[in-house]
Write a protein that binds this DNA or RNA. Sequence first.
DNA 1: TCACTGACAAGGG
DNA 2: ACCCTTGCCAGTG
Length: 109
Amino acid sequence: MAPEPTYYENVYDVVRLIPPGRVTNYGAIADFLALGSARMVGWALNQAIHTGDVPAHRVVNRKGELSGRTHFATPTRMQELLEAEGMVVKDDTVVDFDRYFWSPTALLE
DNA sequence: TCACTGACAAGGG
DNA sequence: ACCCTTGCCAGTG
């Protein structure tokens, strides 16, 4: 493994801090890291699945849609994981996303 | 080294 | 309110 932490390892660290039953979006993580952009986060999470040690299902896009579900083992896996944490997913979108939204900036408070 | 890609976000029409 | 365009920047080939 590379001794030097890469950009996406920082993303992993933030994603692991997302409380169960909560979700966040790509922009919030990018803004918290103040590095790269929302696209980098999504791309980093794609690698995170490969490690299998990051709750990537708690990260959705700004619309609350499960945009990354196709990258999971099965397209429905992401929805199942979110529902298992008490959230409701309708039409590949988190219902009341606004209510379940959590921002990493909360760590600063 | 250059060009293209990508689990997005925000603004404008 | 919806659709399209632009900006974003690390990685990979």
